[in-house]
Simulated scan of single mutants.
Amino acid sequence: MKKTILFVLFIAATQCIFAQKVDLGFKIHPLVGWFNGTEGNATAGGPRIGYSYGVMGDFYISDNYAFATELAITNITGKLDYLGSKENQLKMRLSYVDLPISLKLKTNKSSSNPFRYYGQFGFMPSFKIGGKIKNDAGDQTSISSDLQPVKASLLIGGGTEYTLQDNTRLLLGITYNSGLSNVFKKSEGFSSKVSYIALNVGVFF
């Protein structure tokens, strides 16, 4: 997995070096996250609301195609029912640094239409910052040592960009992030992936 992540990052870095144009901006997105593909002593317990924020960049290959990446802090939340019981429900928040690499396809620019639409598909390696767990009594405990240092996921999304003036554009879109790897260490007695749907709001300068 680590070799795959390094290879993807290397290819993306190479493409960015030879990019014809670069757009940079800031973004924030609220998200709804959940655990899935759970096995062992726990079952998925339902979604929770999280958030992400950071900087983003589009590195253009041509006028309509760009490699899109971000440097973002993401807090994904969800619920797990330990031993399959809602009486033992655990509310979790997992924090990561995300470095997604995706191909973004955009519609043509038009002087008469300020809107430009896009779709994107890519791969996201995420690096652990930490994690917390909260029980029904409200007690919080760190679970950072129980998490894998790196997780991987696929992302697919789409949206629109609205031109305000020159290169200044507002971005609004939706992204689905599908977890590929177990986020917990094998010693925990269960495994689970984590996925989320996010509303992307940002501005390019």
Rank of each mutant, 00 (worst) to 15 (best):
K21D: 10
F127Y: 12
D166P: 02
I28D: 14
Q20P: 11
S144A: 07
L147R: 03
S110G: 00
D63C: 05
F10E: 14
T163I: 01
K151R: 15
Y162S: 08
N41H: 06
K134T: 15
L99C: 03
K2S: 05
A44K: 00
L171I: 00
T163S: 14
F18D: 10
G25H: 09
A137Q: 09
E161I: 06
Q89R: 04
S195Y: 10
F127G: 06
S181H: 04
G173L: 07
V22W: 01
S178E: 06
D58L: 08
P149L: 01
D23G: 09
I73R: 02
F18Y: 11
T43R: 04
K106H: 14
S144M: 00
A42Y: 11
F7S: 15
Q89P: 09
I11V: 11
V201H: 06
G159F: 10
I129A: 00
T160E: 13
I101C: 10
L103Y: 03
F35S: 12
V55I: 11
Y176C: 05
Y117C: 12
V97C: 15
M56L: 15
G25M: 09
I61Y: 02
N36I: 07
G37I: 05
K128C: 00
S142H: 14
G84S: 03
G54E: 13
G130L: 11
E39N: 08
G57Q: 04
M92R: 14
D166E: 13
V150Y: 13
I174V: 13
G78S: 11
P47I: 04
D136C: 09
I28K: 01
M92A: 15
A66V: 06
N75M: 06
A152R: 12
N88D: 12
K86F: 06
D136Y: 11
G57W: 11
G33D: 00
F121P: 02
T74Y: 03
T38A: 11
G173D: 07
T38G: 01
M56R: 11
D136L: 08
T38I: 02
R93M: 04
K134P: 07
Y51Q: 08
L31A: 14
I28N: 02
L199R: 15
G130D: 13
T74K: 07
T168G: 06
S192L: 08
K109V: 01
P30Q: 07
